[in-house]
Design a protein around this nucleic acid. Structure first.
Lengths: 339, 339
DNA sequence: ACAAATTTTGCAAGCGCTTGTAAACCAATT
DNA sequence: AATTGGTTTACAAGCGCTTGCAAAATTTGT
């Protein structure tokens, strides 16, 4: 509720001695405005400290210059890193970011999507949507610009950016095998997530490719959380023939496993090897430093933002998919198994 | 650019057989609408899948239902935790969050503030503003609702939430002293930040209260960053008479110091004790687990959001200041000095 | 049952901006 | 000097909504 009103294009028009529509044309896209006129307008706008009113602009048919970002939660470092990447890319543009956390509100997504398409934002970035979303169809029907980050839709009809989860998991497992390990435990992720499924698949495939048989008992169910990871690790450690190495589906689980292992009186990597997935910041800070599969979270955010920016600049670009590669980051948590 | 238009209040009015202003009154505040009419309108709105157009609403003088959050960067876990707290509080309300990262754009804050007051948002949450901001005056003049988080303005004229930095630092130092340490190093924070100044003050005060003299050489300049913390720690370690304990002004510096200490061939806490400040998630994950001063970051965000919500609900509430208490979290990085 | 007091509804105007269309301008052409 | 054609500017309308004011409907008191 500002007390004194801000200047409008009418004020500028008066100041510059032109009509308000000339001001509008100068300020938004250029169109045909004589150089001298443009300068007059710009000078007047500057003098008056003019700031365009986005709502009015958007109401009148212009863009809102806002990009909506829909995330499930803010409680996870993994999400915030992606947002960080999005933000970094967006600051290079003239767009601002409007954040929608769908959190606890089941089904709130649909309302958000409606509001967004109602002019609240020019585009939508969906980060790791948990459910297979009915509103995707609406977005698509309306030809509204959107990009999926870290969760492709089955139909292949959405522009999306993902990481190669299966390959990453494969390489982690392969690394352990090549180190000489034969009994490799796996702490799985939240089963209703694509990424969790793909990582399990990569683990299995590596085992198969190297002629090792897959044992159900070596897979402990985690949920990508610390507490589940801890329990899963304990479970693995208490096996009659415990694994000599553990591959956790994400770093959070791996750090928890580290804890469990220590409590079990075992040393890493001397007694048991450990690999994570994600390469969150703390992976390189802990002790020992965690060997892990780096997932380019920040990059995913950036790419997603870039894709949406491209789409906005050129509405006719076709659906695209980007799959980013993971990278094995070797640190101090792995060694050959004891003789 | 939705293809088919969304229903407007005119559509609802037609459907319900009333005038559009009745619809408007029903949908926004209540005013005087007959119960039967209200029901008709609501039914019609529901049937048509009506979603209000925020820009139009706000343009016409209504609220935007958006709260602007201005942060310096998203690169710091400390910031994202505060945002998380804000978001948690906001999801309970009908407000959404619009995020402005002032990051690299020096002086962009003023433009953002102008845009926000221009109707882009109903209120503003300023998280850890780095500079003493000239636009605070503008906000205040305009009587625009805003709250400062983790950086009070000198003038005491803003509603703000902070932590008791000095007391926290005092307690950390005191703890070390009571453990028997006499030579306690301090890794300072970014000097132009209030929090850094207060923490240094707390350190000094504890020293004085316990009859220990303050030595300039035991204060190494950090900047709240990992790399500066590392260098600062090295500097302390290389002193002719190195400290037997180090108190770092934030956890990031402390984790870096941990690294430096290890490289120096010293063990924590056997050879040297270490205390941090913040209690970021990785503090409890690393090895050894870091003893630190917990700063209720999430809570700060929540309180800030709550304060702004109160102000929005009741424009006449007076300026308030909340100072949250820190808490000494004792973990494994401290011990009495070697005999 | 009727006027007066209320409650409820409808109309018009306007928030600040974009944009189609028409008018004005200007230089170039004949 | 008059015409032509393109370039630049101005006017009007309208985006979807809120709100002051006046008219209509309903209730109340006697």
């Amino acid at each position: 509720m500002p007390v004194n009103k801000m200047p409008t294009i009418y004020d500028i028009a008066k100041e510059a001695g032109v009509s308000y529509s000339t001001v509008s044309r100068t300020l938004s896209g250029f169109e045909f405005v004589k150089e001298s006129t443009r300068e007059k307008v710009l000078a007047a706008a500057n003098k008056l400290g003019y700031v365009p009113n986005q709502q009015a602009r958007s109401l009148a048919g212009g863009p809102s210059n806002l990009i909506g970002v829909l995330v499930p939660t803010l409680a996870n470092d993994y999400i915030t890193q992606i947002i960080h990447g999005i933000d970094d890319e967006l600051t290079k543009s003239s767009y601002n970011l409007i954040l929608y956390t769908t959190n606890r509100h089941q089904g709130k997504e649909a309302t958000y999507a409606a509001a967004i398409m109602n002019g609240a934002a020019d585009a939508l970035l969906l980060v790791a949507p948990l459910i297979s979303d009915p509103y995707l169809d609406v977005l698509r029907e309306q030809n509204f610009p959107y990009v999926l980050i870290d969760q492709a839709d089955q139909s292949d009809q959405s522009t999306a950016v993902n990481t190669n989860n299966q390959k990453g998991a494969y390489e982690a497992t392969q690394y352990l095998i090549q180190l000489g390990h034969r009994r490799i435990g796996f702490i799985a992720g939240l089963p209703q997530l694509n990424s969790a499924i793909e990582r399990l698949a990569g683990y299995k495939k590596a085992l198969a490719d190297y002629g090792l048989s897959f044992h159900e008992t070596y897979v402990a169910q985690g949920r990508f959380t610390s507490s589940y990871g801890y329990t899963a690790a304990k479970q693995l450690l208490n096996l009659a023939t415990p694994p000599t190495a553990i591959f956790a589906a994400n770093d959070l689980s791996a750090m928890a496993a580290m804890e469990a292992i220590r409590e079990h009186g075992l040393r890493i990597p001397d007694d048991i090897s450990l690999v994570g997935f994600d390469d969150v910041p703390q992976a390189s800070i802990g002790y020992p430093k965690l060997t892990t599969i780096r997932q380019p979270l920040h990059q995913m955010g950036q790419d997603g933002a870039r894709l949406i920016l491209e789409r906005l600049a050129n509405p006719s670009v076709e659906v695209r998919r980007i799959t980013l590669e993971t990278e094995l980051i070797i640190r101090d948590s792995c060694a050959p198994p004891r003789a």
